[in-house]
């Protein structure tokens, strides 16, 4: 009997017991669809009035619980730094010549219109994040997707030219730093950390929401740059091995 088979055999009774315990707990939850949280009700009633944003989730993410989001952003940044640390340090010895192995004709054909379009979509998702659904994280990922398309459609070299490491590093660290600095500004002005200083504007306008707008944009920048860096690390790995794969396929 293989190790895995034996282990799964052990897991069956344990898993069943665990599932039973979990189910017992879940059955004890308040019925699905019934209102219960005072905490949630407070935001539903007051968030738009207090923060002049129509997206209540954005108000919570970037203001009421903005401290969480700061931690979240740093998790993202740490993930990026960690990936770079792990993948860069072993790659040193291997040859780093950039090749252009991947060219999809469809994408090459699509490229002229597609990339600016995706980029625009990303920016749009970020900038309306506190008015309609969307926001810094979502838009940031889309923006990084645009950079990725450059690679898929055109060339790795062009991708590298468009997203040079120093610039992307600066954007990532800079975006995260702006988030921290907005918090510090609140502190410096005699309030508490992340206290809003900027006029709230008219609800529903792009220039509304005070610090929320700034934090949203900073997050978008940091996430987009961070994901580009992650892609970069993984893609650099990929391009190294492509001849291998091609040889195997033949």
């Amino acid at each position: 009997m293989s190790r895995v088979r034996r282990r799964v055999l052990f897991f069956v009774p344990v898993g069943i017991a665990m599932a039973a315990v979990l189910a017992w707990g879940l059955v004890g939850l308040p019925s699905f669809g019934l209102p219960h949280s005072d905490y949630a009700r407070y935001f539903a009633q007051h968030a738009t009035g207090q923060r002049h944003t129509t997206n209540v989730v954005a108000a919570i993410v970037f203001d009421y619980r903005g401290w969480d989001t700061m931690g979240e952003e740093l998790i993202m940044v740490s993930g990026v730094m960690g990936t770079a640390l792990l993948l860069r340090s072993t790659r040193g010895e291997e040859h780093r010549a950039a090749r252009d192995p991947v060219t999809s004709e469809l994408l090459t054909w699509l490229r002229p219109g597609m990339i600016p379009l995706v980029l625009l979509l990303g920016l749009w998702t970020i900038s309306y994040g506190y008015i309609t659904p969307g926001g810094g994280f979502q838009g940031g990922v889309i923006g990084a997707g645009a950079a990725l398309l450059t690679w898929l459609a055109g060339s790795y070299q062009r991708y590298q030219v468009l997203t040079p490491d120093p610039l992307v590093d600066a954007a990532e660290g800079g975006g995260a730093f702006v988030y921290l600095a907005v918090g510090l500004a609140g502190l410096a002005a005699g309030g508490t950390y992340l206290h809003n200083l900027i006029p709230l504007g008219t609800t529903g306008d792009l220039a509304s929401g005070g610090t929320i707008a700034v934090l949203n944009a900073a997050t978008g920048l940091a996430v987009a740059a961070g994901l580009v860096l992650i892609f970069h690390e993984f893609l650099e790995d990929y391009t190294e091995t492509v001849p291998d794969v091609a040889a195997e396929e033949r």
Partner: peptide, 14 residues
């Protein structure tokens, strides 16, 4: 510590 960390990332190349 976080601010120093992100500043180091941002300016690492220089």
């Amino acid at each position: 510590p976080l601010a120093v960390a992100v500043l180091l990332t941002a300016t690492s190349h220089w």
